[in-house]
C-alpha cells in the first residue's frame, strides 16, 4: 500500500464522496460490485438509481461470459444469442443496437424439467431454424417464424448420464460433442459405413484423428420438416460420428468456421 501524495489525494476524494447511503457509494465500489455480477445482473443494477447508472463502466467485465451463445444467420445477418441461464433467445437485427427477445423456452421453466434438461449449452442457426442443445436429454429445434419447436432426444444416452457439450453445424449435419462417450453406437450397418467414410474424409481434411462426437441429425431433414406441413415420425440418428476428444473448444469452432 503506497502512502504519499497519491494516497493523500485518494483519501480526500473518498472523504468528499462520503455518505452513509447505498446510492452514493464511491464509483470504485460500484465498479467492484458490478464486476461480480453477470451481464443481466449488471443491466438491472444500473437501473436501480441514477448514480449507479452514471458510474463509469468502461472496462467492466461481467461474471458470466459463458452463458452467452451466439449464432449468425448469414443471409439476414441477424445475430441470435441464447441466454442460457434464463433459456431466453435474443435477436439483434442489422443496424440495431439492442437485443430483442425472441422466445423463452417455457416448457423448460418448471423446476422439475429445468433440472432434467440442465442449462442450454449451445445454439446453431441453420436455414431459419435454431438448434439449441441442452445439457441433458435433447436438442430443441425452434423455428422463430412459426414459433414452433420440436424436441430431438439425444442418442445413446441410456444409463450413461452423458453431458453433451457442443453443437455444430457442418456440411448439413449437426455435430454433437461430448467428453465421455467411448463406445460408438451405430443405428445400422449403413450408418457405420457412413461414419467410416466421413471419419476418413474428416481426418484427412483436418489432418488429425476425428473421433468422439455424434452426428445428430441432418439439418436438411429438420428444416424440411418445418417448411412442410407434415412432421414425419422421428428419424433421428442418421449416423454416429466421432471427433477428437481432447480438442479445445475454440480450436474446434475455428476449424469449422473456416
Amino acid at each position: 500500500m503506497a502512502v504519499g501524495g497519491g494516497a493523500e489525494s485518494k483519501r480526500m476524494k473518498i472523504e468528499r464522496q462520503w455518505s452513509s447511503s447505498w446510492s452514493r457509494l464511491p464509483e470504485d465500489i460500484i465498479f467492484s460490485i458490478m464486476n461480480r455480477l453477470g451481464y443481466v445482473g449488471q443491466l438491472r443494477f444500473r437501473a436501480v438509481c441514477k448514480s449507479w447508472r452514471q458510474a463509469n463502466i468502461r472496462g467492466i467485465k461481467s461474471a458470466d461470459t459463458l452463458p452467452w451463445k451466439m449464432a449468425v444467420d448469414p443471409r439476414s445477418c441477424c445475430f441470435v444469442t441464447l441466454l442460457t441461464i434464463k433459456n431466453t433467445l435474443l435477436i439483434q437485427r442489422p443496424g440495431e443496437t439492442t437485443w430483442i427477445k425472441l422466445a423463452i423456452f417455457k416448457f423448460f421453466d418448471t423446476e422439475d424439467s429445468s433440472e432434467k434438461y440442465g442449462p442450454a449449452h449451445n445454439v446453431e442457426y441453420v436455414d431459419g431454424v435454431l438448434f439449441i442443445s441442452f445439457e441433458q436429454i435433447a436438442v430443441v429445434a425452434y423455428n422463430p417464424k412459426l414459433d414452433d419447436s420440436k424436441l430431438y432426444p439425444y442418442p445413446c444416452n441410456e444409463g450413461k448420464n452423458i453431458v453433451y457439450e457442443y453443437l455444430f453445424e457442418s456440411d448439413g449435419n449437426l455435430l454433437l460433442y461430448h467428453d465421455e462417450l467411448d463406445d460408438l453406437v451405430f443405428r445400422d450397418k449403413k450408418a457405420r459405413q457412413r461414419y467410416e467414410r466421413k471419419h476418413k474424409a474428416e481426418t484427412k481434411r483436418l489432418g488429425r484423428d476425428f473421433v468422439n462426437s455424434d452426428v445428430f441429425e441432418s439439418t436438411a431433414n429438420v428444416t424440411s420438416l418445418f417448411s412442410g406441413a407434415s412432421w414425419i415420425s422421428r428419424k433421428f440418428i442418421t449416423t454416429v460420428l466421432a471427433m477428437y476428444l481432447n480438442c479445445v473448444l475454440s480450436r474446434v469452432i475455428f476449424a469449422f468456421l473456416k
Binding site: L43, A47, R53, L83, T88, L90, T98, W99, K101, I104
Partner: peptide, 12 residues
C-alpha cells in the same frame, strides 16, 4: 431504460 432490454427485467 427498461424498453432497451425488457428481457433483463424478467425472470428474477
Amino acid at each position: 431504460l427498461r424498453a432497451q432490454c425488457p428481457w433483463a427485467f424478467e425472470g428474477v
